[in-house]
Simulated assay, not measured.
Amino acid sequence: MLSIGEFSKICGVSAKTLRYYDEIGLIKPDEVNEENGYRYYSIKQLKKMLLINRLKTYNFSLEDINIFLEWEEEQLEEKLCFALHHKKREMKDKINALEHTLKQISNDLLHLEKGIPIMSYMDNIDIQLVETQPMNVLSIRQMIDYAQGYGTYFNRLYALIATEKLTLLGKQMTIYHSPEYNPAGHDTEFAIPIEETVKGTRVLPRSLCAKSILKGSYSELTSVYARLWEWIENEQYELVNSPFEIYITNPNQATAPEELITEVYFPVKKK
């Protein structure tokens, strides 16, 4: 048996942390001396503790790890395989986002060193006045948290399209109905153009729109929106309906943010 100090030293975990893990049921000592309360761990518990450490480095929460450890060994391997694949995708997304940010910093530094204002890139965001055609869309509308991904909702729509054997006519799109920013979430409609008229479809009417195209990370959409608002004001137009985005590039198929192409539409009319 190993004392809590010995176990702590071998595993690189403080005794205080081990006591906390005991409290939450993550890993309990094999024996506790009833007279003095000293905790003792078995050699076989070393592997379990090292697994906990490993999963923590992968940014799994203690709650998640606790759930993993409740599974039988065969089930644990299967569940961990799935969880690690998901975590790997998450980390790749974060790496891509960081690489994009580093590239953006480098470009900003290059401009600043040449005496070019840091926000001058907004002057290069092109705006066009276009007329959209009526679109019959299958859609889901609900309040969603800003941290939630859109994939779940589009997958539900694609599953319904496949089940009902509906005919796709265009790219996936989102329509933003919230009148203002709300930290609790936003009123969003997820839509896919289809040919048939079924339950859950509606027609987006023909509309005059201020349109811009973003080639790159979704994090740049705020700049596109700001430029569109600026253009609308300067050209004496006003917004008459909810803005919407059309995703020309499927985000699930893009390997880098630079491959993403998003069309942004603001339905407008002349003041």
Rank of each mutant, 00 (worst) to 15 (best):
N250S: 12
I192Q: 01
E263K: 01
E23I: 04
A226Y: 13
Y40Q: 07
S207K: 13
A256L: 10
E73P: 09
E230C: 07
R89M: 13
S61V: 03
E238Q: 14
F68E: 00
S106R: 15
I127D: 05
K211N: 03
T57P: 07
L76E: 03
Q75C: 11
L55I: 01
V137S: 02
M91L: 15
K16H: 15
E263I: 00
S8F: 03
R156Y: 07
S219I: 02
H111W: 12
N96M: 13
Y150V: 02
N59E: 14
S223L: 03
L157Y: 06
Y153V: 06
D145R: 10
P117R: 11
E131K: 15
N252G: 13
A191V: 03
E90P: 01
I194A: 09
N241E: 12
L138Q: 04
Y40D: 05
G185F: 01
Y146E: 08
I10K: 04
K56P: 02
V264H: 02
G12S: 11
A184Y: 09
D145Q: 10
N234G: 10
G200V: 03
A162E: 13
I144A: 07
I95F: 09
I24A: 01
L239H: 08
K199A: 15
M173D: 04
L157N: 03
R54A: 11
E220F: 00
E131N: 12
P134C: 09
T201K: 06
E63H: 01
F244T: 02
P251T: 00
L228E: 09
S139C: 13
E259C: 00
E35N: 15
L50H: 07
R141Q: 14
S242R: 12
K47W: 05
T163Y: 14
D30A: 14
